[in-house]
Amino acid sequence: MLKRVASALAGLACLVAASLPAAAEYPERPITMIVPFAAGGPTDIIARIVGEHMAKTLGQAVVVENVAGAGGTTGSTRAAQAKPDGYTIMMGHMGTHGAAPALYPNLKYDPAKDFAPVGLAAGTPILIVAKKDFPAKDLKEFVAYVKANEGKVNEAHAGVGSVSFTTCTLLQSIMGTKTGRVAYRGTGPVLNDLVAGQVDFACDQIVNLVSQIQSGNIKVYAIATEQRSDTLPNVPTSKEAGLPEFQVSAWNAIFAPKGTAPEIVAKLNAALVKALDDENTRKRLLELGSVIPDTAGRSSDALHKLVESEVARWTPVLKAAGVTAN
């Protein structure tokens, strides 16, 4: 009896060994894309739209797994430590691969060194918005008013480590102001209190704000990109409006764990590029108000440079503001 069991087990083991990935063509099973934020947020949506098309090219499903927590660093840590076989990749963003080293001194990964960058997916522009009866007409007046009334004005953000927090930290450091900074849990409550006029201004991604702006519930002063957005063509860029240093976009990019074979990274990059060229995918991304990188910006090298420059840019700004998470 025992012998028969043993031989059956041995047979099973052989079978299993045979089915192990050998030299077969990558990918032969579904790919997990970790999104380090809750489902339904801007990064999640971009990951799902891009992933859907990448799956067509790769011939395998791209399954989004949301691992939210600690400003996206929980999911990023898990991705950095995953087996570098190309079956676990992640959608990182400005926070996890730019601001995190300054915010989290105990960070368990190095954004530049612990990942094999695949390519930039899409960025969402940042807007400066205020409650609808805020007394400033344009960005210049806004800056002047905030400077003159530091003790009265309140900024709202979605918690330390959030995009709205980091970008408004940059804005405050450029303006040289220290207003009240009111912390909320997520962008929903921020928007609620901004529409209600409980707080004065905020910085956030265009996706979250478009409908409130179009219906006149909040005021917008500038968009922090080089060019105006097609979604909100009347909103001046920060350069036009007189605050050229405020150039920031919440970029999202795909990363694989360090040590992933270059062929696999190349294959993933090709699938990403193809997705970004697809008309329907482009249309859906543009509807969100996102910016799709040009051909040069989509390479692995370009992403690697971007990560390094972003870390270098955010570290002094956030350190000066004196906030660190954990």
Partner: peptide
């Protein structure tokens, strides 16, 4: 739900 059913790689 993304729950693993078999040991990774063995099923």
């Amino acid at each position: 739900l993304p729950i693993p059913v078999f040991p990774p790689g063995y099923g």
